[in-house]
Design a protein around this nucleic acid. Structure first.
Lengths: 291, 291
DNA sequence: CTAGCCTTCTATCAAACGTTACAGCGCCAG
DNA sequence: CTGGCGCTGTAACGTTTGATAGAAGGCTAG
C-alpha cells in the first residue's frame, strides 16, 4: 500500500521507463516487462488475463507491475499506452507540436499545426503508391484528364497547370461544365483521369468517373479520408486528412499531394522536362515583369 | 500486368475497408466510422461505451457497425485492430525515433518537411496582421475582389469560394480575363482587393492593383518572400516562403494562409455566418450525393 | 533450525463489460 | 391517414473483467 503515486504523469516515454526500471523488478515482473516490450504496445492493450498468459504469469502479477509503474489501475495504464501510441502514429513531429502548443501563437488557433499534421500523414500515405502514379502521369502515350468538384477543381487546376508545363495532352474539366460528355469522348483506353473529390461529394463527379471507366481509362483519385464513392472505381487512391479547427475542411493537404506528385513526375520524365519548362518560360517572358 | 502495389485492392487494411464501405452505412454508423477514422486506431481499442460516447451514439450502434464490418464480436474486431496496428508500428514506414527527429520521409524527398516549415513560418508572419485583415474582410460594407496570377489565381479562387459562403459582395477576377476594366469600375473607396502574386510576377496583375488604388480601394497582398511589386501599393502584405525541393515553387503556403484568414473571418463575423453556411448547404443538397 | 519477509499463485467478488431484446421514432408506399 | 419497415436508443441480462484477500513456497537473517 505504497500510495502517493496517484496519477503519475509519464515524464518520458513509457517504453523507456519500463526499460530503465527493469533491473528493479522482480523476476516475474521482469517477464511481464519483456512480454510488453516484445510486443509493444499491443500486449498491454489486451486484457489482463491474456497479457498474463503471454508473460507466463498470473493476473495479479500484471497488476502489481502496473502499480509499480505508477498507475492506479489497469485502465489508467491502458489510457496512457493509447495516448502515447496514437501520438506516435501521428508522426514524429507531432510530439514537438504538442510541446510547443502552449508557446505557439494562439492567433492561428492551431490551424497551422493541424495542416502540418495533415500533410505529414498524407505524405506517408502517398509514399507507397507514388512511383506507380508518377510513372503513369509521365507516360506520354497516355492522355491525362484532371477533374474536381466545387472546391477541389481548383486543386485539379493546379495539377493541370503543373503537368501542362511538363508534357502535352493534359486537360482540365471544370466543375459544373456542360462539356463533360465531349471531354469523355476523347478519353481512350489506358488514359489517366485524375479525380479530386472531397465531401460533399458531387454526383456529377461520380458520373464522369463512371463514364471514364466505361472508356477503360485508369482512375487516380485524391479524396479525403472518408473516401469518395469514386474510390470503388479507382486504381489508385490517395487519402488526405482535411480536418482543421475551422468551419471548413482544408484544401491544403490536397494541394500538397499534388505538388509531391508533380515532383515525382518530373523525376520520372527525366532531364527532358527541364528543357520544356525553360522554353515555356522564354515564351512567356513578354508577359512578365522583371525577375 | 501484375497487381500494382498501389493497385486495385491494396491488402485491404481495415481502415480502407471502413472508408470504402462508408457510403453504405447508416447515418449513426457513419458517425462511428468517422470517430474511428478520426482517432485511428485507438478509438476502437477503448471500451464500447467510450467509443460510443466519442461517436455520440449508443453501444448497440457500435456493435452493429462492427458486425457489418464482418466481425462476430467486439473482441474479434479489437484483435484485428491490434494485429494490424502492431504490424504498422513495426513496418519500415514508421521507423520513428522517439528521442529525436531522425526519421525522414525519404520517398517524398523532403517535400513534406519543406511545406510544413513554410506553413509554420507564414503562419507566424501572418499572426500580427491577422486581426486587421479579418476585420476588413468581415466588414459587409466593403465589397471584396480577389485576383491572382497564372498559378495563384487558383488560390484566389479558394478565398473567393470560402468568402462567398460567408458574406455577399465577393468577386473573383480570373487571370488573363478581358473584363478587368469592368471589374475595376465597380470598385468603390474602402473596398478590399486581395491580390495573390507570386513570381514570376505578371504585369497585368500590377496594372489592376494600380487601378484599384486609383479607386481608393484597400489592398491586401499575399506574395512570396521576394515581394511582388504590388507590395508598394498594399496596406497589408503577407509573405509566404514557397521554396521546396522541386522545379516549381509551392502553392501550399498561400493556400494555408487563405484558410487561416478564412477561419479568422468566420470568428470576426460571429454566429451569423454559420447560419449562412447551413442555408447554402441546404440549397446545394440536390446536387450532392449521400450525406 | 526457524521466524519473518518477500514473491507468487489460487480462489473469490463486485463492478464493468459486451451483448441482446424491445420499444420509440421517422419515413415511405399504399 | 395508416401500416409496415428500417434505424436507433433504452433497459436488462449473463458473462467476463480487473481487483483483492489469503495461502503456499522460498529465501535470508539470526
Amino acid at each position: 500500500m505504497n500510495g502517493a503515486r496517484t496519477g503519475a504523469r509519464p515524464a518520458q516515454s513509457l517504453q523507456d521507463r519500463v526499460r530503465r526500471d527493469l533491473p528493479a523488478f522482480t523476476e516475474a515482473e521482469r517477464r511481464v516487462a519483456h512480454a510488453l516490450l516484445g510486443e509493444y504496445p499491443m500486449a498491454g492493450l489486451e486484457t489482463v488475463a491474456r497479457f498474463a498468459r503471454r508473460a507466463e504469469t498470473s493476473g495479479p502479477t500484471i497488476l502489481r507491475f502496473i502499480n509499480r509503474l505508477g498507475f492506479e489501475s489497469y485502465a489508467d495504464f491502458q489510457d496512457a499506452l493509447r495516448t502515447e501510441t496514437q501520438a506516435r502514429l501521428q508522426g514524429p513531429l507531432s510530439r514537438y507540436d504538442l510541446r510547443g502548443q502552449t508557446s505557439a501563437p494562439a492567433a492561428s488557433g492551431g490551424l497551422a499545426v493541424a495542416m502540418r499534421q495533415n500533410i505529414e500523414t498524407a505524405a506517408r500515405d502517398l509514399a507507397p503508391s507514388l512511383p506507380a502514379i508518377a510513372e503513369r502521369l509521365a507516360d506520354l502515350d497516355r492522355k491525362v484528364l484532371c477533374i474536381g468538384g466545387r472546391f477541389s477543381w481548383m486543386i485539379a487546376g493546379y495539377l493541370h497547370a503543373y503537368l501542362r508545363e511538363l508534357r502535352p495532352n493534359v486537360r482540365l474539366v471544370r466543375d459544373g461544365s456542360a462539356s463533360w460528355a465531349d471531354d469523355l469522348l476523347d478519353v481512350a483506353p489506358a488514359d489517366i483521369v485524375v479525380v479530386f473529390d472531397f465531401r460533399r461529394y458531387q454526383r456529377d463527379v461520380l458520373e464522369l468517373a463512371k463514364g471514364a471507366v466505361a472508356q477503360q481509362a485508369e482512375i487516380i483519385l485524391v479524396t479525403d479520408i472518408w473516401y469518395s464513392p469514386v474510390a470503388a472505381l479507382a486504381q489508385h487512391v490517395v487519402a488526405c486528412p482535411v480536418s482543421i479547427p475551422s468551419a471548413f475542411d482544408s484544401g491544403v493537404t490536397g494541394l500538397a499531394v499534388v505538388e509531391i506528385i508533380t515532383a515525382a513526375v518530373i523525376d520520372a520524365l527525366g532531364p527532358g522536362s527541364k528543357g520544356r519548362i525553360a522554353t515555356l518560360e522564354a515564351l512567356r517572358k513578354p508577359f512578365n515583369l522583371g525577375p
